[in-house]
Design a protein around this nucleic acid. Structure first.
Lengths: 248, 248
DNA sequence: AATTAATGTGTCGTAAGTACATATTTATTA
DNA sequence: TAATAAATATGTACTTACGACACATTAATT
């Protein structure tokens, strides 16, 4: 390295340190939910930071100057799962000073819901894997808090909004749907009352087909009605909230 | 200016341009709600950007490298209202590329609830004023969207959580409380049903005093029970959500 | 003393939530 | 092929919440 190159390099390093100190980086982190084997799962990757050796982290990236928040989230989803037609919802911004060991990084957390069978990535090749939410104890950064926050939001959401279907294949039985609710909410539901409640919501169409891969009496298959199949949501939880009132 | 000074200055300007181009600034904006004259109001300031001449904007500021998001929000509240014991809740991050005319700025929106009579600032002196939410048509930046989003969130919140009391003085009558709900929700409520519902929630204590400044039969005065008087909330809307279930 | 205006309270009909049991259908096994 | 096992499909009675609605009471005003 010539002396000139050295000087340039030094200047660059100084500039970077300067940036690190005075600026705040901003990222998005995606809690990608999937559903398989009667369990709610999250897509995690092995952390590449030595501070977090052995721990997993969410999928995320810095936001680029020319993309907005949703674009950044979709980029991550597309890169990691190959899917671009997914349900996505912003949940919360996390910005404690100490949350990232390399510097100040504020992150905006999203969760997304995908059909786990529908993406084609070879997960095992790149240390990317699905983990049951219930078994996640510790993650890199504050990612455990982010997962918990997103799960809490999802639990609120599914009670009133037909978003859960993004986790299922197009055709599903009422049993599968009930098991999914149970996995998300962490409770057992009464089958008769569950069916009554779903039926009142009028979200489903009976497609006049039966299950054929079950070792017992097959159930009817249903689809979500077309009008509810808007997968892309922005600000959805505020703008399309169900109208309840403290009185009438 | 010597040639050396000029070189230094040039270098600095280049560095700043570099920062502007490659970095994303991050701010918090506060929708400060107050309640007066039977109307929900928001604290707004005249915009000092010429692009938004004549328009008002929310109170906000860039986040400093050494403060977290809540600290920044509280700093703004303290600076502008003199209050530091306020209810604060994060709502949403807004990050479209074009939302700020001077560069890329992502903002994290909070709303806060304060007792409008309780802060002592001379508002008229610094172009800071309270405006009825219902009369706000157009604001600088995307601040109208931010106000709408925060109002929608507040509307959801008040149905189940005792946060509304942060907008009232310590002692209030049921009529005042009902009028406040009406102002926030934008609906008329039936007095008998409203009182029944509030009574079931068991949030209030009868302090055995009466109104004394009303030109009609005075009503009883109430206080919020002490256990609900936690004014500072973080992640509150997810962590302390009421438990409803799709079945039981 | 009469009037006005707001406070304070209860009932009844309807809708939703919850607990719970039996008949039916299909696959499996003997 | 008949019996068994396991899951589907469905309905009723009870309780709780919601919503519409009316009248007696109290204090200020005239």
């Amino acid at each position: 390295m010539t002396e000139k190159e050295l000087r340039l390099k030094t200047a660059e390093i100084e500039k970077i340190s300067h940036l690190d100190y005075f600026n705040i980086a901003i990222s998005v982190d995606c809690v990608i939910f999937g559903y398989d084997e009667k369990e709610l799962k999250v897509l995690l990757i092995k952390s590449d930071l030595e501070e977090f050796a052995g721990l997993h982290s969410l999928l995320g990236d810095l936001i680029r100057p020319d993309e907005d928040l949703e674009t950044a989230s979709y980029r991550i989803l597309k890169d990691r799962t190959g899917l671009d037609d997914v349900y996505l919802e912003q949940v919360h911004a996390f910005g404690s000073i100490e949350r990232h060991p390399s510097g100040r990084v504020i992150t905006i957390a999203y969760y997304s819901l995908i059909d786990i069978k529908h993406h084609k990535l070879q997960l095992s090749h790149n240390e990317l894997n699905w983990y049951p939410v219930s078994e996640i104890k510790k993650l890199a950064f504050d990612h455990k808090l982010i997962v918990d926050t997103c799960l809490a939001r999802l639990q609120e959401k599914v009670l009133e909004h037909p978003v859960i279907f993004n986790l299922l294949p197009e055709k599903f039985s009422l049993r599968e749907l009930q098991e999914l609710y149970q996995a998300i909410l962490g409770v057992e539901l009464d089958r008769r009352n569950f069916r009554k409640k779903i039926s009142i919501k009028d979200w489903l169409v009976d497609i006049d087909e039966m299950e054929n891969d079950v070792p017992h009496r097959p159930g009817k298959l249903y689809k979500l009605k077309g009008q509810y199949k808007k997968r892309v949501h922005q600000l959805s939880n505020y703008m399309d909230a169900p109208s309840t009132s403290i009185d009438g």
